[in-house]
């Protein structure tokens, strides 16, 4: 098999290096590029949209660089992985920063945890930060060799609420169940950070690299 090129989209937001290092670790023979160049990204075999920070800045970064259109193009036809806020940008709208329109690639919106409590009525900390169990709701190539309920590393104050149940392939609980992994055709997106989730996260990235975009 020929070597793949995997592009990590650089739209000026936060730390892309962790993602690139983890991809290089699971795919030592493939070419991992961090890029903001339309042609390079469109020529890649698979594309990763990472991101940290607040949604307004992320959306501004995508629009200012012209990469919003590139994301729409590549997410329509090649294996595409959104991570954390990169997942949230795919939705219709986020209520963060007073309400921000997102890319509208997957139907649903992004809501804040606000005031959440545990089973004993104690207030939970926000952001939801740390290792939580992710339950596999549907079969998907991304779950290959990952045990149901494995823990992944999360850092976020807002979560995705997909409009259609069929989009949700993984969920986690923080006061209530929320969408941790969603999919649509050749797109998969995780609220947690696989690049920081030790063996389970690396397995997920390896599954993504191996994925041809078919279910």
């Amino acid at each position: 098999m020929t070597h793949k090129t995997i592009a990590v989209i650089d739209y000026g937001m936060g730390n892309l290096h962790s993602v690139a290092k983890a991809l290089q670790h699971v795919a030592p023979k493939d070419r991992i590029i961090i890029s903001s160049d339309r042609q390079q990204i469109e020529a890649a075999d698979s594309v990763v949209l990472p991101g940290v920070g607040a949604i307004r800045d992320c959306m501004a970064g995508l629009h200012d660089t012209g990469l919003a259109d590139v994301v729409k193009t590549v997410s329509a036809n090649k294996p595409f992985l959104g991570i954390c806020i990169g997942m949230q940008t795919l939705m219709n709208r986020s209520e963060e920063n007073g309400g921000v329109p997102c890319l509208g690639i997957i139907d649903g919106d992004v809501q804040g945890f606000g005031f959440v409590t545990d089973d004993n009525g104690l207030r939970l900390k926000v952001p939801h930060m740390g290792w939580n169990n992710v339950y596999q709701r549907e079969d998907h190539p991304i779950w290959h060799r990952i045990a149901d309920g494995s823990r992944f590393y999360f850092v976020h104050s807002y979560f995705v609420k997909a409009q259609y149940e069929a989009s949700v392939i993984g969920s986690a609980d923080y006061g209530f169940p929320f969408d941790a992994v969603i999919q649509q055709d050749n797109i998969v997106a995780t609220q947690f950070h696989p690049e920081k989730s030790a063996a389970s996260g690396l397995q997920l990235l390896q599954n993504f690299v191996a994925w041809d975009g078919n279910q």
Partner: peptide
């Protein structure tokens, strides 16, 4: 460390400027 250990990594000590932070994040700190 960041090239082979894939859990969150915090770096402290002498972080005084935005450039210090950028340098550490680029090196692979989270």
């Amino acid at each position: 460390i960041a090239s082979e250990v894939f859990i969150p990594l915090t770096v402290g000590g002498g972080i005084r400027t935005l450039d210090n932070i950028k340098t550490m994040l680029h090196a692979g700190a989270d």
